[in-house]
Design a protein around this nucleic acid. Structure first.
Lengths: 329, 329
DNA sequence: CTGAAAGCGCTAACAT
DNA sequence: ATGTTAGCGCTTTCAG
């Protein structure tokens, strides 16, 4: 079997009968070459199966070819962040970029060697986030950063509105007193959930009943909060759980209280996880489409890096309601 | 704020009073420089916060700086593969490597431009796997490839033995007739589970009772298999579920059959997923430590690539039993 | 034991 | 509209 000669831009240029600069310009569509030449070069490149060498490109451009990614310290526990990171990595790979995970355990005070940053759900008060936000690097956050100065780009979802739609759905299914378990306002997402709930309650003349738990609350705290809400009188007839996975953790508490999810207690989750569809009964959830969210963040960052998007850009990432037996009976 | 002059190997060399060749050799520990010089260079590099430029390195070495990763098409559904991929990516990042996910939908017949391949649970008969295995590229598989010619490196876990230990545990908890739901032998992992089960049953004079489902069986197929096993007479008093997530999917069937998991039916999963610990009752599982498995595969591939490991290397990846209420009452 | 020089593939600056 | 040249940071000959 013949040794495969690597196909470089020079191979393409020779074969197309042009210089390597022209080949380069044609391939990137710099607008410097004639349409005819461009077409020729493109065709030749395609025929040869030419793939640009990312290393050479980054070396020349003095870019690191790497973006930094930070998410709250719940990675392995939360399938949401797993998928989110996945979306970022996938999108980055397409653009020939590497992704460096920036953990909260980062001791070095130095800014990591990256071309830009993606911050998923930046929590105000997180020292790593604070440091990264003040680094002079193009930055995109998923949800707004509640801590003052915003990022160069933001990808956000209409969480408050979606909570309203979820509560409408619960009402249509017969609920009159929905309660909420939610994380504190250090994350924009939780703050939005909380706000959407209060707004809906006010508009519908319903008293509020909420318990606040930490952003990454362990199961026992979530269960304690659920117990308190269920024990209150008058008791709620629906329970909306904010934190990822909380709704499944709450199920045993519901049974212990002598209630049945989907019949005399409607149950919903603000984060769809694989466990929700598998729970007994399956739990109505808001699908945050984390993989697509991650991809959108990366996309926006690259647009920022190559000037396709202007600093200050905000893009909306759509989310979806997934009604299941826990609220439809 | 002063413009940060990028620290290159030349900066280090000048500061240490040596040539860039010597600096390079010292930093990589090529064994060409004196211990003294080496120490000096290392210290200077540390002081300056020098980080080698991956692009330049890869360009010079004519490596792509990318490894290809293929896993069965169950990525988002299975937290196992999510974690596995994560482990690979994490390890790759440390070695300045990118990871390209090779999907089964890959239309291009061309071998992807990568330095090596990691194949997670290669299924015999998967056309993409067959093609990749026959490409002339350093390859590591997680579990053996049942399809004949082996990979250059294999990371494997003692699944058969672990099933034996799990069955011992069930017996100690009072089970006399354990049944098994398992995937077909197109994956080495499932074959091992099956074999471990048969071996144990023979050794313990217990009749076997198994149902085979597809590797990525949807919930309804798993449930149907469980129903058949539970309806058999004499009925099993323990149920071991192979496929990821199957054990939680089976819970409703168990209840519908008038049995109670953890009391009159012991239930166990061969794949620990986040849902197992959260189920009601929590389900005894085998923790495959997927993230570490992914890291081990990447590590072995890099060892192969730089000659630290010889072709034909097999490394054992330890797994662990996590006993929970579903088998301990 | 160490240096000097070449060159990986690409693109930006400077030519025509 | 296209070609020529230089050089990104690194490692690998080839010479001392």
């Amino acid at each position: 079997m013949r040794e495969e000669e690597p196909v470089t831009i020079i191979t393409v240029a020779k074969r197309a009968g042009v210089s390597k600069t022209t080949a380069s310009d044609a391939l990137r569509g710099s607008g410097r070459v004639s349409a005819e030449t461009r077409a020729t070069v493109m065709r030749v490149a395609e025929d040869l199966g030419y793939v640009p060498n990312g290393s050479a490109r980054h070396l020349r451009r003095a870019s690191t070819g790497t973006i930094g990614l930070h998410v709250p310290e719940v990675l392995t526990r939360s399938s949401y962040y797993m998928s989110f990171v996945f979306g970022v990595v996938e999108r980055a790979a397409v653009n020939d970029y590497d992704v460096t995970l920036i953990t909260s355990g980062e001791r070095r005070a130095r800014t990591p060697r990256v071309d830009g940053l993606v911050l998923g759900d930046p929590l105000v008060g997180d020292p790593v986030v604070e440091r990264l936000m003040s680094a002079r690097l193009p930055t995109v956050t998923c949800e707004r950063f509640p801590g003052g100065r915003g990022a160069d780009g933001v990808v956000l979802s209409p969480h408050a509105d979606m909570v309203g739609r979820l509560l409408d759905h619960l009402r249509d299914s017969g609920a009159r007193r929905p309660a909420l378990i939610v994380a504190g306002d250090e994350s924009d997402w939780a703050a939005e959930l909380h706000q959407g709930y209060r707004r809906w309650c006010r508009a519908n003349g319903v008293p509020t009943a909420t318990r606040t738990v930490p952003f990454d609350a362990p199961a026992d705290q979530v269960r304690a909060a659920a117990r308190e809400l269920l024990d209150a009188r008058p008791a709620p007839d629906a329970l909306v759980c904010g934190p990822a996975g909380a709704a499944t953790e709450v199920l045993p508490v519901v049974r212990a209280a002598g209630r049945e999810a989907g019949r005399d207690l409607l149950l919903a989750s603000c984060v769809d996880t694989p466990g929700m569809a598998l729970a007994d009964p399956p739990i109505t959830s808001i699908d945050l489409r984390p993989r697509e969210a991650g991809a959108a963040c990366a996309e926006l960052l690259f647009d920022l890096l190559n000037g396709t998007a202007q600093p200050g850009t905000e893009r909306v990432h759509p989310i979806e309601l997934r009604p299941r037996a826990s609220t439809t009976g």
